[in-house]
Amino acid sequence: MSGTTALSDAIAVERKRYVMAARQSDTETAWRALERAHILSQPMLGQHMHVHWLMLCYAVRLRDIREMLGQIARLALAPIGALAGRVPMGNTGRSNVSAFAPMPIPEDLRPLLAKKHDNSSFRR
């Protein structure tokens, strides 16, 4: 399985986890699933933008103005960062963290990202 396929599959799992948690009003689990999807999506701009869109939609649903504004900014910044090769790996993508700060990648996600990085010129 290619790095991109494995990552796409893992992102889909996290998106499903988000949907299930949001339906059950489990906000903590929903955000955690979106954060994990964000970490996994960073090497792929389209997926990355989609996760930020989901984060924005969830913030709207929760009426979280700070998160809405943060996601709007990230939707504008993500393409620029990708083009410049400056994506802060491990960053959870939420407005409660700097959009520019790399963060530790969860152990269980590292092999998926390492496989993608081995097959691309993606830089930290």
Results as ranks from 00 to 15, higher is better:
106 P>D: 08
107 E>P: 04
85 G>W: 00
69 L>M: 12
22 A>D: 08
55 M>T: 12
116 K>L: 14
18 Y>M: 12
20 M>F: 08
18 Y>E: 13
29 T>N: 08
118 D>Y: 00
91 N>D: 11
63 R>W: 07
27 T>S: 06
16 K>E: 15
36 R>T: 04
27 T>H: 08
17 R>F: 00
106 P>F: 00
60 V>M: 10
78 A>N: 10
88 P>K: 05
79 P>S: 08
43 P>Y: 04
98 S>L: 11
45 L>C: 07
16 K>T: 13
23 R>W: 06
11 I>H: 12
73 A>H: 07
117 H>Q: 13
9 D>H: 12
77 L>G: 10
15 R>P: 06
115 K>A: 12
112 L>K: 06
103 M>K: 04
29 T>G: 04
115 K>E: 13
66 R>M: 00
83 L>T: 01
13 V>E: 15
81 G>H: 04
11 I>W: 12
43 P>R: 03
9 D>T: 12
19 V>G: 10
74 R>I: 05
20 M>V: 14
75 L>H: 01
38 H>C: 13
31 W>T: 01
101 A>Y: 05
119 N>K: 11
83 L>M: 11
114 A>E: 15
79 P>H: 05
58 Y>G: 09
53 W>K: 12
77 L>D: 12
103 M>I: 02
96 N>G: 01
98 S>D: 13
95 S>T: 03
108 D>F: 03
16 K>A: 15
118 D>F: 00
102 P>K: 10
